[in-house]
């Protein structure tokens, strides 16, 4: 069981490693972006796919990471590594506080409360426009963007930094959901009352899952700012709360590779359609409706049910 999982994950990582040397530069650039977005979706998947917490406000944690890094580098003049750690701390603090409050509600209430908190976060970014420059955003200067001497402004540096983060998160979350902790989260998703009756501290476990999910999302946000050198209020908006939901639904909620598969498909779909029309979000809307109607388990979820029951 676990041997197959590990082989699959390592195989995917090996293919991604090789892909850089095979793909033309445009696509390897896109793939670097996709891997960072997939990290965001993997974080989201822990809350939504495994624990059953449908949050509509994860952009708040993505933005906490993004601005934690970008502002400490831009205004504080910090080097990249401490700025990245501060970003994780910012995401941890925000997710911790939001989790305590939002987890008092459930179902539809939880969705609306997370949406509202994220909206307040977005408005806060706009309110402090003197530092964040609001919707327009700001660019990080090229010379400060390096990590352990690795220059992340070059295509290769950017790609391998993204791959490293992706690999760490994939393997760590893959192990986490196989561990008793992850199993308990699935038990909570399937039947919260029963898990509570079996003696699990459901409220605390949900909070931990939510916070880990928020920190991973924050790591993705910080990496996005560092690798692509830009922070803007768009990333705190509703749209960026919807994207990870879309990726996870498309790829398959509660599967380890679903977020990545969903991100690849959706990224290229939106990329292709934005070449044709400015109304590229139409694709996202259609995908959401069609997925809820016809493929509620996503690509890998359906594959797991029909053909490959061992799929992690």
């Amino acid at each position: 069981m676990t041997g197959k999982d590990a082989a699959l994950h390592l195989g995917v990582l090996a293919v991604l490693l090789a892909a850089f040397f095979v793909l033309p530069e445009y696509h390897s650039g896109s793939l670097a972006r996709i891997m960072v977005l997939a990290v965001y979706a993997m974080g989201y998947n822990l809350a939504f796919g495994y624990t059953g917490l449908l949050s509509l406000g994860h952009a708040l944690f993505f933005a906490a990471g993004m601005y934690g890094l970008a502002l400490s580098m831009q205004i504080g003049g910090w080097p990249a590594l401490p700025a990245f750690l501060l970003a994780l701390g910012a995401a941890l603090a925000v997710a911790g506080a939001v989790g305590v409050l939002a987890l008092r509600t459930r179902g539809v209430g939880f969705m609306i409360v997370t949406l509202m908190f994220a909206q307040a976060g977005y408005l806060t970014v706009l309110y402090f426009g003197a530092w964040t420059r609001g919707d327009e955003g700001f660019a990080l200067p090229q010379e400060v963007r390096n990590l352990f001497g690795l220059d992340v402004t070059t295509p290769a540096g950017r790609y391998f930094a993204a791959l490293a983060l992706f690999a760490v998160v994939l393997l760590a979350l893959g192990a986490l959901v196989r561990a008793p902790f992850g199993r308990t989260l699935i038990a909570i998703r399937e039947n919260e009352a029963r898990a509570a009756m079996l003696g699990y501290d459901v409220q605390r476990l949900k909070w931990i899952a939510f916070v880990v999910s928020g920190v991973v999302s924050g790591a993705a946000g910080a990496a996005y700012a560092l690798l692509f050198g830009y922070a803007g209020a768009t990333f705190a908006g509703v749209q960026y709360s919807i994207f990870p939901l879309l990726y996870v639904l498309l790829g398959g909620a509660g599967t380890t590779l679903g977020p990545f598969v969903g991100a690849v498909f959706m990224f290229y779909l939106i990329d292709l359609s934005s070449g044709i029309t400015t109304a590229y979000m139409l694709v996202a809307g259609l995908a959401l409706v069609l997925l809820t109607l016809f493929l509620p388990q996503g690509i890998l979820g359906t594959l797991r049910r029909r053909a490959l029951p061992w799929l992690p």
Partner: peptide
């Protein structure tokens, strides 16, 4: 909610 979010984008973008 997920389906109506989809509907939101379909109407808005159309």
């Amino acid at each position: 909610i997920v389906a109506t979010i989809g509907l939101l984008y379909i109407i808005q973008q159309t």
